[in-house]
Amino acid sequence: MSSEPITVTEQSVRAALVGYPHRVEDRPDLRPASVTITLTGSADTANSVLITRRAPKLRAHSGQWALPGGRCDDGETVVEAALRELAEELGIQLDESAVLGRLDDYPTRSGYLMSPVVLWAGDVGQRGPRPLRPRRAEVAAVYGIPLEQLDVEPNLLSIPESDAPVIQIPLMGRFLHAPTAAVLYQFREVVLHGRATSVAHFEQPVFAWR
């Protein structure tokens, strides 16, 4: 992990993503969904990515760490779904001018085709121009993870259920698993290091297959 704070700009992230040809999967067997990698920060604060802990009473993946997002409604684009889900889950209202780019589609074991959309939210917080208002029915907690905490090498594990390696990212004294770990690892590689790194081959832990 980097010892010094990592800062980026809206322009530098957009340039990194413009230069990366994200992969779009043709998987009609999977339900389309969007997740957001939402960057916060201002001239006076360091950059962070917003991560949530899902509410304990949700029907699926309760209590797990996640990026804001959810399934696309009928007729909705990936970007439209990302902006809507961010507003519904965290109360952050952004428009398409906040979209910096996309990363690779990631098929999940639970039946979704996850499309990551990178957004610039700027100054977010209880006293900022965009206050956080988490929807408690869906979000138990929300965290701003500094970029230097994401700049880590992942753990790769073997499991008997799959030939593919399971990816984990050490974070906040525990481990973040795929699919969220895979998406954030690709963000780290493409945006922070300028490396065109695929993550489609990374597996998810068995508990995330349902």
Score class of each variant (00 low, 15 high):
residue 1 M to W: 15
residue 1 M to A: 15
residue 2 S to L: 06
residue 5 P to D: 08
residue 7 T to K: 11
residue 8 V to K: 03
residue 10 E to H: 13
residue 11 Q to P: 02
residue 11 Q to N: 03
residue 16 A to L: 10
residue 19 G to H: 09
residue 19 G to R: 14
residue 20 Y to L: 03
residue 22 H to E: 14
residue 26 D to P: 05
residue 27 R to C: 07
residue 28 P to S: 10
residue 32 P to Y: 09
residue 32 P to K: 06
residue 32 P to M: 09
residue 33 A to N: 10
residue 33 A to D: 06
residue 34 S to Y: 02
residue 35 V to I: 11
residue 36 T to K: 02
residue 42 S to F: 02
residue 42 S to W: 03
residue 43 A to F: 08
residue 47 N to P: 13
residue 47 N to K: 09
residue 48 S to K: 02
residue 53 R to V: 08
residue 55 A to K: 01
residue 58 L to P: 03
residue 62 S to L: 05
residue 65 W to M: 01
residue 67 L to R: 00
residue 69 G to C: 06
residue 70 G to M: 06
residue 70 G to Y: 01
residue 71 R to I: 12
residue 71 R to Y: 11
residue 75 G to L: 09
residue 76 E to Q: 04
residue 77 T to F: 02
residue 77 T to E: 12
residue 78 V to F: 00
residue 85 E to Q: 10
residue 87 A to P: 03
residue 88 E to A: 11
residue 88 E to H: 14
residue 89 E to P: 03
residue 90 L to I: 07
residue 91 G to L: 02
residue 92 I to L: 09
residue 93 Q to E: 15
residue 94 L to W: 06
residue 97 S to R: 09
residue 97 S to M: 01
residue 97 S to E: 12
residue 98 A to V: 06
residue 101 G to A: 08
residue 102 R to W: 02
residue 102 R to Y: 01
residue 104 D to H: 04
residue 104 D to E: 07
residue 108 T to L: 06
residue 109 R to F: 07
residue 110 S to Y: 11
residue 112 Y to R: 01
residue 113 L to A: 07
residue 115 S to R: 01
residue 115 S to N: 04
residue 116 P to C: 09
residue 116 P to H: 05
residue 118 V to W: 01
residue 118 V to D: 01
residue 119 L to Q: 03
residue 119 L to E: 07
residue 120 W to A: 03
residue 122 G to C: 13
residue 124 V to M: 00
residue 125 G to I: 05
residue 127 R to N: 12
residue 128 G to S: 11
residue 128 G to K: 03
residue 128 G to H: 04
residue 129 P to A: 14
residue 130 R to Y: 15
residue 133 R to L: 13
residue 134 P to R: 02
residue 137 A to H: 05
residue 137 A to W: 05
residue 138 E to M: 04
residue 139 V to G: 01
residue 140 A to S: 07
residue 140 A to F: 04
residue 144 G to S: 08
residue 145 I to Y: 01
residue 146 P to L: 04
residue 146 P to Q: 06
residue 147 L to Q: 01
residue 148 E to T: 06
residue 152 V to H: 02
residue 152 V to I: 05
residue 155 N to Y: 06
residue 155 N to A: 13
residue 157 L to M: 14
residue 160 P to D: 10
residue 163 D to K: 07
residue 165 P to K: 00
residue 166 V to L: 13
residue 167 I to Q: 05
residue 167 I to M: 14
residue 168 Q to I: 07
residue 168 Q to Y: 08
residue 169 I to Q: 00
residue 172 M to A: 10
residue 172 M to Q: 12
residue 172 M to L: 10
residue 176 L to C: 14
residue 176 L to A: 05
residue 177 H to S: 15
residue 180 T to N: 05
residue 183 V to L: 08
residue 184 L to E: 00
residue 185 Y to E: 00
residue 187 F to Q: 04
residue 187 F to L: 12
residue 188 R to H: 12
residue 191 V to H: 00
residue 194 G to M: 12
residue 194 G to D: 13
residue 197 T to I: 15
residue 200 A to P: 08
residue 201 H to E: 15
residue 204 Q to I: 11
residue 204 Q to T: 12
residue 205 P to D: 09
residue 206 V to G: 10
residue 206 V to N: 10
residue 207 F to T: 12
residue 208 A to H: 07
